[in-house]
Design a protein around this nucleic acid. Sequence first.
DNA 1: CTATAACACTAACAACCGTTAGTAAATTCA
DNA 2: TGAATTTACTAACGGTTGTTAGTGTTATAG
Lengths: 199, 199
Amino acid sequence: MLSLMAKIKSGKNGTRKEVIIEKATRLFLEKGFAAASMRDLAEHVGVEAASLYNHIQSKSEILQEICFKVANEFISHLEQVESSQKSAIEKMEILIRFHIRKMLNEYESIYISDHEWRHLPEPYLSNFLNQRRHYRKRLAAIIEQGIQSGEMKQIEPYVAVLTILSAISGIESWHRSRKNISEKDMEENMVKFLVEGLK
Amino acid sequence: MLSLMAKIKSGKNGTRKEVIIEKATRLFLEKGFAAASMRDLAEHVGVEAASLYNHIQSKSEILQEICFKVANEFISHLEQVESSQKSAIEKMEILIRFHIRKMLNEYESIYISDHEWRHLPEPYLSNFLNQRRHYRKRLAAIIEQGIQSGEMKQIEPYVAVLTILSAISGIESWHRSRKNISEKDMEENMVKFLVEGLK
DNA sequence: CTATAACACTAACAACCGTTAGTAAATTCA
DNA sequence: TGAATTTACTAACGGTTGTTAGTGTTATAG
């Protein structure tokens, strides 16, 4: 009894399922979710396609795990920031830096979460979009508050949120390129641009 | 002789091929290029799938037409701006407004050009990416010049270009949402954010 | 009106899709 | 070691993919 998670541990890389999701993340990034096949994924994992189904339930389950893992990380970080006693502008800078760093360090999964969510099946699709809308509203609320306290300039919070989040997602291009610019420069310059844009 | 374009004109909407590309644009936007099937497209056009091949050569030819039409529009506009006698900051504002308006008015094709280009077959893929890289370098050159003339603040031009272009592509979210904000507000707020971010 | 070109149709192709069934090998637990 | 569980394999399924061949229909040009 007790079901102590059996074996499942595949040496170094954690659960076999985790390995599958990790490889799938790269594959979805390169080919897109729809164009990436299970046989393709299986080859990267080093196994036959059918064997994957001993660890996952479906192709779209992989996408779900990627998307909601990312979403949950951002939401829980936001809650942390919200409950802190910082000024609105400080909160925004913290959030912006968090987004930038996530994008710098683990952009594969974030990119997928940002661009492949439409292939989520219902009800996950609606769920995901609701979470995203809610997240953005909470960011807008911080900006709203920053405007009212005079910390930020008069700007439509919705537009500011859109602008900031989209701008950060552009770091994807940096990843795909030859990276003539360091991570640190990337972060500082973007923060300079985006945070100053609020003031 | 003279081949005066035969008939081909399909009443109001121009060439039959243009209709196909138009419908494909919407379809690729909603489902993504890989997930959109030719039978799906045919249904939207009101024809059998095989009939499409009387007007196009392949599925990816449609994608090519969309991507390069967009690219050419931006490049030729850039050349126009470059050859004008404006200050760097003015040039950037003109370019930013052009991007924003394009995104507001015909975002379907721009979105596809921005997000589905990886499904271009070679050599079109390399060609497209080269054009894009070149375009961004020329934008960066304008910013570089703006910094040296003291019009703009000290910022890494590459990062600024990335930030601006990505931010604008976020207008896609506005299109997908309920649009509580007018086009004009969208443009002015975004310009305020992005142009001020340069000063 | 007739010849010709443009177009849409049906049928089918080979390849690939996600997924399941059934079974053998490997691993873990007692 | 023996029993049980997990994992990988082969084979195959029904369905879809982009695309072609071949044929008939429609519209245009001379």
